[in-house]
């Protein structure tokens, strides 16, 4: 709140994340898995939608949001993911295709944010840490998938594994520069 300079955060990426969670958690009210699962889904949905609402509606934040640099066009990511989900999925049902779409979209949703960081170059600590933990979240899933692959029979899910791996790869160079800046205790700057 106090850092109303939202210059570093990409509204485009926030909107893509809101779409990812909206299309992935369609079965939240029909299938109860666990309290943790339901609570976290509500947290993911409420946090992503409130960030979008806040960045769009809040007068102070809207003015400082860097809209002339955050110009990545959603449809360049949404349409290919939708087409891919219609072609490659495990079952041709609305729920399964929507879920698969959300898996593909999450893998690339960070791109507008990474493009914005390279354009604005002034990466303040909050934004840098935010992007770092967004990437760390999915890379920790890879550790979980490896563990489950070796401990549970028939635990093979190519769609989530490949998408999660691609997503983590997209962060690779950001992780490299972020960890270097952290190690050398210098300001994080990405190459143009």
């Amino acid at each position: 709140r106090k850092n109303t300079n939202k210059r570093g955060v990409s509204l485009k990426t926030q909107e893509l994340y809101a779409l990812v969670f909206a299309t992935r958690y369609l079965d939240m009210f029909t299938d109860f898995i666990s309290l943790y699962n339901t609570v976290m889904k509500l947290i993911f949905l409420s946090s992503s939608f409130s960030i979008v609402w806040y960045m769009r509606r809040h007068k102070l934040v809207r003015r400082s949001y860097d809209k002339d640099h955050d110009t990545f066009r959603h449809q360049f990511l949404v349409l290919p993911c939708l087409i891919l989900a219609l072609l490659i999925h495990e079952q041709f049902t609305f729920k399964e295709v929507m879920w698969t779409f959300s898996i593909y979209l999450e893998a690339v949703a960070i791109l507008p944010q990474l493009v914005l960081l390279q354009r604005t170059r002034n990466i303040d600590n909050l934004t840098g840490q935010y992007v770092f933990f967004l990437g760390a979240y999915r890379s920790l899933y890879i550790l979980n998938w490896i563990y489950r692959y070796f401990t549970e029979p028939h635990y093979v899910h190519w769609i989530t594994w490949i998408s999660g791996f691609v997503q983590t790869l997209l962060y690779a160079d950001f992780f490299y520069y972020y960890l270097n800046s952290w190690k050398n205790n210098v300001k994080l700057t990405l190459p143009a």
């Binding site: 976290m40 999925h89 495990e90 729920k95 399964e96 879920w99 698969t100 898996i103 769609i159 989530t160």
Partner: peptide, 10 residues
């Protein structure tokens, strides 16, 4: 289907 078998994942 995948959405069912990994539904315990967020």
């Amino acid at each position: 289907p995948a959405s069912e078998s990994v539904k315990d994942e967020l």
